[in-house]
Design a protein around this nucleic acid. Sequence first.
DNA 1: CTACGCTTTTGCAGCGCTGCAAAGCAAAGC
DNA 2: GCTTTGCTTTGCAGCGCTGCAAAAGCGTAG
Lengths: 342, 342
Amino acid sequence: MRREVTLRDVAELAGVSSRTVSNVVNGYANVTERTRERVQRAVEELGYRPNVLARNLAQGRSGQIAVVVPYLDTPYFSELLQSVIRAARVSGYNVLIDQTDGDPEHERAFIADGSRRLLFDGVIFSPLGLDQQALTNRDHRLPLVILGERSSDGSFDHVGIDDVAASRQATEHLIDLGRQRIAAIGDQPYATGEAAQRRTRGFREAHAARGLTPREDLIISTPRFNRPDGAQAMAHLLDLAEPPDAVFCYSDLVALGAIRTLLSRGLRVPEDVAVVGYDDIEDGRFSNPTITTISPDKEMIATTAVERLLLRISSPTPPAGLELRAPHRLIVRESTAGRTPR
Amino acid sequence: MRREVTLRDVAELAGVSSRTVSNVVNGYANVTERTRERVQRAVEELGYRPNVLARNLAQGRSGQIAVVVPYLDTPYFSELLQSVIRAARVSGYNVLIDQTDGDPEHERAFIADGSRRLLFDGVIFSPLGLDQQALTNRDHRLPLVILGERSSDGSFDHVGIDDVAASRQATEHLIDLGRQRIAAIGDQPYATGEAAQRRTRGFREAHAARGLTPREDLIISTPRFNRPDGAQAMAHLLDLAEPPDAVFCYSDLVALGAIRTLLSRGLRVPEDVAVVGYDDIEDGRFSNPTITTISPDKEMIATTAVERLLLRISSPTPPAGLELRAPHRLIVRESTAGRTPR
DNA sequence: CTACGCTTTTGCAGCGCTGCAAAGCAAAGC
DNA sequence: GCTTTGCTTTGCAGCGCTGCAAAAGCGTAG
């Protein structure tokens, strides 16, 4: 394989210094038209391409940010990523994505060991298996914004929605529909289940606010928030002596799984069991029935996260870690309202 | 911000040369236990982290591969990515993902200008808006494997399934069900629609093989392969004087959109209209009804792509570009077979 | 005691680029 | 004519690491 064409090669051909070639290539400052043209021609003749690696090393920055998510095939994340990518591109940053599979080791490696920190100027991170401590004991030189789960300890920003309020609102919607036995699918009563626990809290608060007490056996834990989890949990609920007549699912995927189980057992949604989801993914707008859901403002979450991250990157002294809330709203669809006659 | 801790700093503290520190850090060759320990201690004391950028520059490789897809929120891609990431990790490669939005400029930038080639040792690429020519005029120094759309020109590998055969099989399934007016949703009769056209070819071949002629007004083009496209195309089909009694959709998303339209118009699937999809995404296994679909062996596609890419990376002379076919099969579910009584 | 072969350690150059500061140069000012 | 000013261009060091080849150390054989 032929050797790389370098700045120096171009410089030689154009009869200028390599520094001037660099200036031309980067569109820098003051270069005479004549020089610029000569260099340009040499660049083309040799097919010169800058070596990004070398540039990054010399500059000490990479112009790239990483977005780290647990699962790419979770629509919530992939939809959110869309917006993040667009927001970052606007600011001239390239986005690279990494999937952790929710593996705590992998997650830790990314932010703690910091060996890859120089590949990125900053990271937007959605941790799953990481406890608060691991976040605190990280490499603090890497600008960090967290999405979703954890709350901030002051050394990074956290962007999310008000899970408690949203969950409360979703549950109240079911109560107002006159449902008596409301289940919740998706609790995670352990250290890494912060977000799930906030939703359970909202679920309880909604009951309390109406003077009700939720039935504990209707609160179901699931390891993840996906379709099979929802289907399985729903099956379990239906096998109870007194099955629920409504379900609040902690994600739309869970809701989709739950609905699948309901319909395949010959039950009707929402007549027999009303279902509310969470996330407002596209699936829920095209499923049968369509899903009533909590819709977080993903666009806002994404732009806020990018904005804060870029601020952190450019700021010489790290700004205080903020707790940022994007708005959300309840969108009522067929899974609670029934099919609107067309 | 404090200066980076470098190899030299560690070397000084440990009283050895920086090259020795490098050897220890990389677990190289022959280092006495005594030296190793001393260095190790110094590394920890200073909190030394190797600078990946510098290492990559010196080595001329990055240990990373990129996977470039048009849309991350398309489940087919995100499911495929899962497998690619896993396969690459096994070989010690880190995977970074880039989304092009199907923008031809962006796609071209990635493989043609080559300025980022050094950030990656190779690229697995699923182009959308790129014509064959752009693929041929690319920077040939970057090892490349193409997924899906285009076919190989000999300078890269192409991994996919046999679209024609698969589509033929899907259509034959509908014919065998006794359907008379079979529609196809997803044709793309223009340069960048190769894959779509292969599916249309299979659709026609199936008819021909049974001595039938497809109705041209039942072959609908769509700009993309997503839910709204499917919903809209289906609406159009239902407004025809003689609407179809079966539909072959070029992706499961299209099928989901089509089904949504059917059900919301009070039609039954499959009794009134049978639907076949393509891709076998998880949605189709949990939707109502579940979707009969062509299931490509994604695992095989992913591992083959990674395998070939790594071969290209390590090979001093580029291997011949291969056309590789992963197996597929037709999975019959409710959208053509009806609900199995439980 | 020297020579030899092996393991361990070292020094240096260089990956390709940019930051910095100085040098060169042409036009303008005195 | 000489200095000043402001724009262009240059040279050099260095980002932090690794490849290479030579040097040093060390045990064993002659």
